[in-house]
Design a protein around this nucleic acid. Structure first.
Lengths: 211, 211
DNA sequence: CCATGCAGTCAACAACTGTTCTCCGGGCTT
DNA sequence: AAGCCCGGAGAACAGTTGTTGACTGCATGG
């Protein structure tokens, strides 16, 4: 058996973290398919060969980043949908949560947005799988709400996917706002935009069973 | 003066096209930031140095691809919004148009989806600008419809952006469906999904001014 | 018809890449 | 206390990259 808390294991995890962090920094200005193994180890200050002690390849490192990035996204999405209050303040709180998440983990959000349609197939697939899980969770959350009375499971999943995609679009806009000429001003603009879009979707949801 | 139709210019344009086409093929399995100049020329069967006669760099080639890809997307978006008929058949026709466009120009759609959040800043910016133009056009198109009576210009733009994003999300899903185990079956699933999502948005639009 | 322009070639460059093999030192197990 | 385990270092490999300068052949415009 290998102890999870030895000086040995601790150092290994420390180097691993350093590699992941360095990769996230480098991925701010390029995409995973152009990320070099040597580039990452150089940024950490470690020999190129040390990379292999932690990852098989940069695509493998990418897979680890998917787990990490969507792991941090997970509670945010859950909180966004299950926030209490009436419809209007629920939307405001949801947009606020997204905004805060982007501020807290910009590199994670950028990674997911970039590699979701990126050039590395296994990473793309991993993101797709995780987002499908998210949509599934959002569906069951929505199913528990009184507004969903009479909805079919299929339609609930349809709505859940719309929500998840809209969250990612919004998160991506918040991310771009950080590099604008006047970040706070742009952030406010995105907040207003996203709020109204979610309001419109919520409106569509309310009248879905009308006809 | 330079004639636009000489044997000379024709050959140059032919090589340029070959470079762009080769790049689009290579970009099916990687992203622009990892696309090599030599890689492209090798695929065309031309000397690496010939590349410089047409583009300053691969990022410059990317900019040309943005123009081409969104140029082909442009009429599709216009047609999607301005299609006649009642709401329900308008939606069905719009989804059909998106589906056909993806079948006709899969590489273009893939390029836009991938590089919209990709690692090459100027290309990202170019796509952002063009999509903003699209949203602007959709806005004026929407403004001409009777359903938009009483809407503010701001709200119309909000709706237009929601439509544009939703079209891209849908196009991306159609693209993925082509690589599924049963493409026609998956295409049908995406069609049903996208149709209902657009229906829900249209519903929200109809009740926007209710409260 | 001749001289110019220009798309494309060729060779060479320093720099960089992923990967292998060998080695070291110190935490870990017994 | 002895020895294994293993994260990391170092050197070397063949192959690739972007960019350069000087070249060639041919369509072009005077």
């Amino acid at each position: 058996m290998s102890h999870t808390s030895g000086i040995r294991q601790a150092q290994k995890q420390k180097t691993r973290r350093a590699l992941l962090d360095a990769a996230l920094v480098l991925l701010e200005e390029q995409s995973l398919s152009s990320l070099g193994l040597r580039e990452v180890t150089r940024a950490v200050g470690v020999a190129p060969t040390a990379f292999y002690r932690h990852f098989r390849s940069t695509a493998d490192l990418g897979a680890a980043l998917v787990e990490e990035a969507l792991g941090s996204l997970h509670p945010m999405i859950g909180a966004t949908v299950s926030v209490p209050g009436d419809s209007e303040e629920r939307i405001a709180r949801a947009v606020e949560l997204i905004s805060r998440h982007v501020e807290a983990h910009p590199a994670h959000v950028r990674f997911v947005a970039r590699e979701r349609h990126g050039g590395v197939a296994p990473v793309r697939e991993a993101i797709r799988r995780e987002l499908a899980r998210f949509a599934e969770e959002v569906r069951t959350e929505l199913a528990g709400q009184p507004e969903s009375a009479g909805w079919s499971g299929d339609d609930l999943l349809m709505l859940a996917q719309l929500y998840v995609d809209q969250m990612l679009v919004t998160a991506s806009l918040f991310l771009e706002s950080r590099e604008a000429a006047e970040p706070e001003r742009e952030r406010e603009r995105v907040t207003r935009l996203a709020t109204r879009q979610m309001r419109l979707i919520a409106l569509g949801r309310r009248h879905w069973l009308d006809g």
